[in-house]
């Protein structure tokens, strides 16, 4: 039986300004945690990208992830019009810095995430298959704005993270049904009793991406849930790492 390898899609480093239990301040700390948990690779972002400066946070992240080939980066974007982050050589910069996906915090960083702001850019990342990671966990987007985004950019590769404590199948299943490049990160889907099984049964295991939500959440929680989920071994392997690998292989930077 093929072993389950865990590739964590939802991890941040850096200590939040108001403090947080167990946050790690650098890649060495994360490395240690991943070894403890048996997680082989991770897509990482830095909390300063959200809390402080996306520009400086992106720079710190690139420096931290350069220390190990087990880490890949997720940069935060801002509206292209201000040219703070999205510049002419942006995709080249991504490639040079091992950045494989992007995230966005529109309400917190005070802009509107729609076709007016991101029309050309979101077309480009749709064509390049660059995943956009969105979080429901930091008061950054509403379900309405997410639905609008997917309607405007139906080919966009979108990974919805931190979906919430209460199950949100009534919100997410229409998106999974309608948009083939829409995915769910698992750290809170695993929390829902039967959430992973029901989603796999309805949409297949290809639409779920493993994540722990570390340091906010306990990695062993989503690991134990997935290992003992009532789905096939191949489904578990897909969720744990293969789906994310497949998405990243399609990427054109």
């Amino acid at each position: 039986m093929e072993k389950i390898e865990f590739f964590d899609a939802n991890v941040f480093i850096g200590r939040p300004h108001n403090g947080m239990f167990g946050a790690v301040n650098n890649s060495e700390g994360l490395f240690e945690e991943m070894d403890k948990q048996g997680i082989s690779r991770a897509i990482v972002w830095h909390i300063f990208q959200y809390e402080g400066s996306p520009v400086e946070g992106n720079r710190i992240l690139a420096e931290e992830i350069s220390k190990s080939d087990r880490f890949y980066g997720c940069w935060t974007i801002l509206p292209p019009q201000t040219q703070e982050i999205i510049t002419e050589d942006f995709f080249k910069q991504m490639k040079e810095n091992k950045i494989v996906c992007l995230n966005v915090f529109p309400d917190w960083h005070r802009f509107v995430m729609d076709a007016v702001t991101f029309g050309d850019f979101f077309q480009q990342i749709s064509e390049r298959n660059i995943p956009l990671f969105l979080t429901m966990g930091r008061s950054c987007i509403s379900w309405d704005s997410l639905y609008r985004l997917m309607r405007d950019f139906p080919r966009l590769t979108c990974v919805l993270c931190d979906i919430g404590i209460w199950g949100v199948d009534r919100y997410t299943w229409p998106l999974l049904e309608k948009f083939e490049n829409f995915y769910l990160e698992s750290s809170q889907l695993s929390l829902e009793e039967g959430g992973v099984e029901a989603t796999v049964k309805r949409f297949g295991s290809e639409r779920i991406i493993f994540g722990t939500g570390f340091p906010v959440r306990y990695p062993k929680a989503s690991i134990l849930q997935l290992v003992h989920a009532d789905i096939s071994q191949q489904d578990k392997i897909n969720i744990a790492s293969k789906n994310l690998e497949r998405i990243l292989k399609k990427e054109k930077l």
């Binding site: 199950g167 009793e193 039967g194 306990y218 062993k220 929680a221 134990l224």
Partner: peptide
């Protein structure tokens, strides 16, 4: 306790041990 059938038992068992 878990509020079952809201939350998954393995998830909570893993979380408790991970503390």
């Amino acid at each position: 306790g878990t509020d079952w059938p809201w939350f998954n038992h393995h998830y909570y068992i893993g979380a408790v041990i991970d503390s």
